[in-house]
Simulated scan of single mutants.
Amino acid sequence: MEFDPGALPEQTTSSRTVKNVIVMEEPAQSAECERRMALSGDNDTIVSVTAKRGEQGRASLCDIADTATEIAAEKLGTGELDKNPRSLPQDSLANENACALLSPGTLGELVRGVDAANPYVGYGNWTCKWSSTTGDLRVNLHFDQGRQPDSTDGAPTRLNGYRAFVEKWADDESACLTQVVYRSYPDRYGRTKAETLQLLVGGSSPMDQLCRISTELAYSATAQLRRAA
């Protein structure tokens, strides 16, 4: 489930209302099924629920997406969406601002023609995206949490003391992903989870160049995290 700024698009797909939450159904795809939600009258935040291949076992992707959407819509419909949760640990990466981790100077050195002054800012400042105005290079820096990355997630390295893994992104053969393990923690079942900084660079450049840019940008971002710690 993801939170993004903006409004739902003009109705081009089927929709329904659960309590006061508008739910739009995206056309099913072979690898995923997506539902998008917004509170009636709220044009500030979209909630997206996506079920992906590999997560569903024998069940239908859209059945899973619909079940998760119904639960989320019921909760959203009970009141206003809290856009600034404060129940996070003090050392959580979620307390950081993704856009503040890369300076215009650093972006300009590595991404020719980047529009550093006008990034796309995601929900909670947990996602920041930049694009080149003179080419097709794109940069996506976002925070995530879940399974702790390991050597199966790419070539291991260290960036300013943080463990990191670099690989060609599985979802897009024209992009390279650097995953940085910021913090590990036990979940309520005693399993080790991790908060990660994800630095994705995509475009038509050779993969080794995309991975070099991704790693160097992740190095700069982690240096900023070290200074702020």
Rank of each mutant, 00 (worst) to 15 (best):
L102Q: 01
W169R: 09
D82R: 12
T13K: 07
H142A: 06
R112Q: 14
L107M: 08
D82Q: 13
D153Q: 14
F143H: 06
N43C: 04
V166P: 00
D63I: 05
L137V: 09
S15D: 11
L159R: 00
V49M: 05
R58D: 15
D187E: 11
D4A: 15
N84L: 11
P119C: 09
E10A: 15
S214R: 08
S214I: 03
E96W: 03
Y185L: 12
P27L: 08
T106D: 10
G146M: 10
T12F: 13
S48R: 13
T78E: 13
L88C: 09
F143D: 02
R86A: 12
P149D: 06
D4F: 08
N20G: 06
E55V: 12
L199D: 06
L81D: 05
C62I: 10
V21M: 03
P206K: 11
V21R: 02
L110W: 01
N97S: 13
T67E: 14
L88D: 08
L159Y: 00
G203R: 00
Y123P: 02
V180T: 10
V23Y: 01
D115H: 03
R147A: 14
G161H: 08
L101W: 04
R183L: 08
V181K: 07
A100F: 02
A116Y: 07
A72P: 03
K83C: 12
S132C: 12
F143K: 04
K19E: 15
S184W: 01
E96A: 10
S103R: 08
I71F: 11
D44F: 05
Q209C: 03
K168S: 13
M207L: 14
S204P: 06
P85W: 07
K52D: 14
L88Y: 13
L101S: 06
R183C: 09
A98S: 10
A94Y: 15
A223V: 00
R58V: 09
R227A: 15
D4E: 10
K168A: 13
E167V: 13
A7K: 15
E195M: 00
A38R: 02
L210V: 03
R58K: 13
V49N: 01
L225C: 03
P9M: 08
A68H: 04
A98L: 02
S151P: 00
L39E: 07
D63A: 15
L81F: 12
Q11Y: 08
N125T: 04
Y162S: 07
R227V: 10
L159D: 00
T215D: 09
